[in-house]
């Protein structure tokens, strides 16, 4: 990892009451890299992802994206919580794709994509529409531009959701188990789109159970369990020759 680091997390800690969801978790993702986070459910993978774009506020540690401290402003020895407007500004650069798609049901596929660029970035509607059409083309859904989410299959909805994230021209996109809510036969169309996105140089952090995708597309893989990082390294090494017995056990269990 000698390229420039886009995401750097140090000692991220998150508690829910007495339950420690994240325990001093660290993560580094280089620009243009695909980083997969794997692990059993409840291991804190999604929580870590949600701390990066401030959907969850962490209780300790720090995260930088593009060399900018997330959620805080440093002033001497103090860390000040930033304003809501500042948080919104930081989130614009960080796309997110959800397990349950979360498309806006009252807006068509095209309207879903232009909503952010027009309302948040202040782009002209015509320009935004043109760009949105190009994005829909890219995810293979140009013919569905005027369909509402309820008229699309799960796989199609998730592809629109990816296009929506791309519409904001983010520095990185977070994927929170993007294929877990899909029927098995719809998984590959979404993974194909993600593979193309990775090939185009987008920085991606992907929480997933798709070890095949991790093996073929990811540069690095991080295995988490019980709120801790157990093992992290190059995808080929972690998945094929894990150092930790726990990682090996998990990979074997997922494959069988």
């Amino acid at each position: 990892m000698n390229q420039d680091i886009l995401v750097k997390a140090i000692d991220v800690t998150k508690n829910y009451g007495h339950f420690r969801a994240l325990d001093k978790v660290g993560l580094e993702v280089a620009r243009g890299e695909v980083s997969c986070i794997i692990g059993p459910s409840g291991s804190g993978k999604s929580t870590l992802l949600r701390c990066i774009n401030l959907l969850e506020r962490m209780d300790g540690g720090a995260i930088w994206v593009n060399d900018e401290l997330i959620g805080y402003r440093r002033d001497g020895n103090n860390l000040h919580e930033i304003s809501d407007a500042e948080i919104s500004r930081q989130r614009r650069r960080i796309g997110m794709v959800f397990q349950r798609f979360n498309l806006f049901p009252h807006k068509t596929a095209l309207e879903n994509i232009i909503e952010g660029p027009v309302q948040v970035l202040g782009e002209a509607v015509n320009e935004a529409r043109e760009r949105a059409m190009a994005l829909l083309e890219r995810v293979g859904l140009a013919d569905k531009a005027n369909h509402y989410p309820s008229e699309l299959s799960g796989g199609q909805q998730q592809r629109v959701a990816i296009a929506r994230a791309m519409g904001m021209r983010p520095d990185l996109i977070l994927f929170d188990e993007p294929t877990s809510a899909l029927d098995p036969e719809l998984v590959s169309e979404v993974l194909d789109v993600m593979r193309n996105l990775a090939a185009s140089g987008m920085t991606m952090i992907v929480v997933t159970h798709e070890l095949g995708f991790a093996r073929n597309v990811a540069n690095t893989v991080t295995f988490m369990e019980a709120g801790k990082v157990v093992e992290t390294g190059l995808a080929s090494e972690v998945l094929s020759a894990p150092r930790s017995a726990r990682t090996a056990e998990f990979i074997k269990a997922v494959h069988s």
Partner: peptide, 24 residues
Amino acid sequence: GQYEAARTIGMTQMLMLRRIVLPQ
């Protein structure tokens, strides 16, 4: 999930209420 999706595209509280939450 709608609130979260609106936040991740950088919407402020008011914009989210007006454009995403209230219409639904």
